[in-house]
């Protein structure tokens, strides 16, 4: 029943720096976090996703050799973590992306220092935006505020 469990891995198994990826080189978050436009989970990249670009030496940075050797040895799914939201919370990345919410609106800009923004999230911050009390300048469509919209 269900998919086989993937063992928890240390996030630092492949050296990864957000500052070298993302906006600065013209990459959208969804390029690696493949579910962030269409799925509930944003997901972490698989090795194949990394290899899409890293099949070629991308820069002359000496670090790239270390990276290439680590990638060659890496697991198919190098990153995994326990879901940070409780199980009774239904959060769908795709719906928010489709509504025009930018990744940085919720996750902040801390991802450049490899912080995903968990300290910014609680039910109160979700409700404030859903009730229209924050992000007024972005003009989002009114969002659902009844319990069963996000819980089950």
């Amino acid at each position: 029943m269900g998919e086989p469990r993937v063992p928890e891995r240390a996030v630092g198994s492949i050296p990864f720096d957000h500052a070298l990826h993302g906006d600065s080189i013209g990459l959208d978050c969804a390029a690696c976090h493949t579910g962030s436009r269409a799925s509930a989970n944003a997901f972490m990249p698989s090795k194949a996703d990394c290899m899409d670009c890293h099949r070629l030496p991308l820069t002359e940075n000496p670090g790239i050799e270390t990276l290439d050797s680590m990638l060659a040895k890496a697991d198919d799914r190098p990153w995994s973590h326990k879901r940070h939201l409780p199980d009774h919370v239904v959060f769908h990345h795709g719906v928010h992306a489709a509504a025009g919410v930018a990744c940085a609106d919720c996750h902040g800009r801390g991802y450049m220092q490899n912080r995903y923004g968990a300290e910014l999230f609680n039910m109160q911050s979700c409700l404030k935006c859903h009730r229209g009390e924050t992000f007024k300048e972005k003009g989002f469509k009114p969002a659902a505020t009844y319990c069963a919209a996000c819980h089950r």
Binding site: E3, M44, S46, H81, H88
Partner: peptide, 13 residues
């Protein structure tokens, strides 16, 4: 406090 999730997130299947 909320109960922690038991689900693991890795790459998309």
């Amino acid at each position: 406090s909320s109960q922690n999730s038991t689900n693991t997130i890795d790459s998309q299947s």
